[in-house]
């Protein structure tokens, strides 16, 4: 049966919390935008930081929030950490990022092939869609597949580059939801804290 074939699509083995913690280790002046659901929890669990902007909604918008930020702050490295479902809801944003070419920008997709927040239904990625190929087709000059912690360690310095973006990284993680740890969900607070951290006055 055709369905059995796609169901055999292999999933990752990397622990998402360890992966994100390793990715953001020694983060220096890195600015981080998170896609809703588990990526927001993962980034918060890796260490609360005034340079984090957590989304709790706006599904499909994370990469574009990151793009607007990267264009506004060309001297700071910016990374979006999001999930495969979130990124695929805003698939067009990969095209928009690729043609806009922000050199200081990375989209890092934690890909577990499932919609983790809503009952672990198989996502399009789990059913066979290859996001890296889409990113490549969109024209990202840098596309990387990461499957283990060594891969994260190798990739981490590139996050801080201001010259060779935009970069796309697909981080293949294990399906499954670790216990939730919840970042602040008061958007006004997170916005004002983020802007203050960059030196902008709070209105």
């Amino acid at each position: 049966m055709g369905e059995a074939k796609v169901m055999s699509h292999s999933f990752g083995s990397l622990d998402r919390r360890e992966a994100v913690k390793a990715l953001l280790a020694d983060r220096k002046d890195l600015l981080v935008v998170t896609g809703l659901g588990s990526p927001s929890y993962d980034v918060f669990a890796a260490g609360e930081h005034d340079g984090n902007f957590y989304l709790w909604g706006a599904m499909g918008g994370a990469a574009m929030v990151g793009l607007g930020l990267a264009l506004a702050q060309p001297k700071r490295p910016v990374v979006v950490v999001t999930g495969d479902g979130e990124q695929m809801m805003g698939l067009g944003s990969l095209l928009t990022v690729a043609v806009r070419k922000p050199r200081n920008f990375t989209v890092a997709v934690l890909d577990n092939g499932h919609f983790g927040e809503t009952g672990m239904q198989l996502s399009h990625s789990g059913l066979g869609v290859r996001l890296s190929v889409i990113a490549q087709g969109a024209g990202f000059p840098s596309v990387t597949e990461i499957v283990d912690l060594d891969g994260i360690a190798d990739y981490r310095p590139r996050l801080h580059s201001l010259s060779d973006g935009p970069r796309f990284a697909r981080i293949k993680i294990a399906p499954g939801n670790p216990e939730r740890v919840l970042p602040p969900r008061d958007g006004v607070f997170v916005k004002s804290r983020f802007r203050k951290n960059l030196g902008y006055s709070v209105s």
Partner: peptide, 26 residues
Amino acid sequence: IKTTVLTTEEEGIALCAGAWIGGDRS
């Protein structure tokens, strides 16, 4: 002016949010 062509309008809403937290008016 940093000008960005979008594939769909809601991208622009999210872009405006990112610009604002980074100190740009969009």
